[in-house]
Design a protein around this nucleic acid. Structure first.
Lengths: 203, 203
DNA sequence: GGACACATGTAATACGTTACATGATTTT
DNA sequence: AAAATCATGTAACGTATTACATGTGTCC
């Protein structure tokens, strides 16, 4: 989420992405910007693309704030730097990691599938079924992918376990949804329902 | 997610927020920008803040693209407009709503709680417990809030059911996590673990 | 009739995205 | 050594956020 102007640059708390990057540095030790990118590039369920345009400037900003330090790459002719967590960065990272737990941390983020369910009444029954079937298929595939993501420590394992549980809940929900809509009591399936609703609307 | 320059402005597909706004217009008929804002303002688990700076310009852009039409408010001296879904907007909305289901629609978005679990090893056991306990408490409160959000139609009900299921999965996961970490086999609880890990890191 | 919330915007800012431009390394 | 891929960035862009400015209605 793009942030506005908040407080004096130095004291601003970390964004989620900044926290993740600092966390990577904490967990894996000094590394290049590209190694950080790869974490996002490789993850099947990362919200961020790990685009170069995000990571390189972000690390530059973190260095400007004194949260990381950089050294020229020692090996070979490759230009570029390795970044390491600075003491101030460690402090900020722990502050970001620890309580208090804010409201936006517990609330669900946007879910494109759920969002569309709100408006599923706009589709004829046939297309709804196609949508649900396709979603369920992709959900299953994604769940299978989750099983093979790397878990380098106990906490990775626990976190992936959480992701898996949520994916399973989402899948089960969509399966029930399909059953409910395909079965007897499908809402708005009687003839003329579409036209009748159309009159209420603008276009 | 902030988008880059993609294709010619006219043909660009809708962002999630644009889809939601058009969907609101489809579902509730013509209304003011503020009424749209309220949907986000009132929802306890919306990713978007519904800030004025997001909605007013967004509706202006949609009008520019011919997806909505506006009329001056008929009632009273209040300035401002009501927006209605235009035929082109309806078409685009249905295109946004329907298949194909893309990968980013099925993958889990960022979850601040889960993100932190990856790095929970950075906290001493005591602070971990505080974090988990506090999270669980807020999760329960949020779940209670979910029970009272408005459901104006069957699809609202189904969507909220999905949100509830995911929240419950998240809660159950965190409860188990707390049990696992508090109980016997807590990782890195032996003395000196922190210092030992510290040597690996930069700070 | 002043205080206060509601409603309607605008301004400045930050930042993640795509697309592009090179340089280095490996493959063929 | 030409081609392909990996790694390191930069540029332009869109857009959500916070903060502010102002007008309108309601409540004491």
């Amino acid at each position: 989420m793009p942030g506005g102007a908040v407080g004096s640059r130095r004291l601003r708390s970390l964004s989620e992405l900044e926290g993740c990057v600092l966390g990577h540095l904490w967990k894996h030790g000094p590394c290049t910007a590209y190694a950080v990118r790869r974490q996002f590039l490789d993850s099947p369920s990362s919200h961020w693309s790990g685009s170069a345009g995000a990571i390189y400037p972000l690390l530059a900003r973190l260095e400007e704030r004194g949260l990381v330090t950089s050294k020229r790459l020692p090996r070979g002719g490759r230009r570029g730097w390795t970044y390491a967590l600075a003491p101030a960065g460690r402090t900020q990272f722990l502050r970001w990691l620890a309580p208090p737990v804010t409201a936006d941390m517990v609330s669900l983020s946007v879910d494109p599938l759920r969002t569309r369910v709100y408006f599923l009444g706009a589709l004829p029954a046939r297309r709804r079924e196609v949508f649900l079937t396709e979603s369920i298929g992709k959900l299953r595939a994604h769940l299978a992918d989750l099983a093979s993501v790397s878990r380098e420590d106990e906490f990775d394992r626990l976190a992936v376990e959480g992701a898996t549980r949520m994916m399973k809940a989402r899948l089960a929900w969509m399966e029930e949804l399909r059953r409910a809509l395909a079965g007897g009591k499908a809402p708005q399936r009687r003839r003329g329902a579409r036209a009748a609703r159309g009159k209420r609307r603008g276009g």
